[in-house]
């Protein structure tokens, strides 16, 4: 009971910090909120018995990726967003839509029962039986081999695209 309450607390805080990432005008503050959000997500993973995922989340996202983002902010010198963003009317409309649609979605989610995912491959029992890392590795390199390889192509495309957009014209 206490555990699930802490889980919900961590999830809610993740949500709050993520919203702060989006609404903060100072880019460095925004990046720091993102670090907080990544850490809290790792806490959520811990409560879901995924220690390995939590460690990866902290090392890769809160550590490495965020460092890159902060470096990028420093190099491009994007500290504070100077002008006010003129999106008043759209903002109100968006707020109304969010206030209406989000509860609607939550209500819909509460309707009926059907959590069949508990029977999936990464169940609590399988986690206890084999351990998290062997289980994940097994699934990733056998059943999910093809998407795993396709991700490598996706990363290649990301690099090619970044170079194509950033490099100077030949002539």
């Amino acid at each position: 009971m206490l555990e699930s309450m802490l889980l919900y607390l961590a999830a809610a805080l993740t949500l709050v910090t993520s919203v702060m990432v989006a609404v903060t005008r100072n880019t460095v503050h925004s990046a720091l909120w993102m670090v907080a959000s990544c850490f809290l997500l790792a806490v959520v993973f811990l409560f879901l018995r995924l220690q390995f995922m939590a460690a990866l989340q902290v090392i890769i996202y809160a550590g490495a990726v965020m460092m890159f983002i902060i470096f990028a902010i420093m190099m491009l010198n994007l500290r504070v967003n100077p002008g006010r963003i003129q999106l008043r009317s759209t903002k109100t409309a968006g707020l109304v839509l969010v206030l209406f649609l989000f509860p609607a979605l939550l209500l819909l989610l509460g309707m009926g029962r059907g959590i069949a995912a508990l029977q999936g491959q990464v169940s609590l029992r399988a986690l206890e039986q084999f351990g998290e890392v062997p289980l994940l590795a097994n699934v990733m390199f056998s059943d999910y081999l093809l998407p795993f390889e396709l991700v490598s192509i996706l990363l290649t495309v990301g690099v090619i695209g970044a170079v194509a957009l950033a490099k100077k014209r030949k002539d």
């Binding site: 819909l108 989610l109 509460g110 309707m111 009926g112 059907g114 959590i115 069949a116």
Partner: peptide, 17 residues
């Protein structure tokens, strides 16, 4: 296959979302 053998899932909120 799952939907065919468990048609009640079609009216669950999770599925509709």
């Amino acid at each position: 296959e799952f939907i065919r053998s468990n048609p009640e899932v079609l009216s669950s909120g999770l599925f509709l979302s």
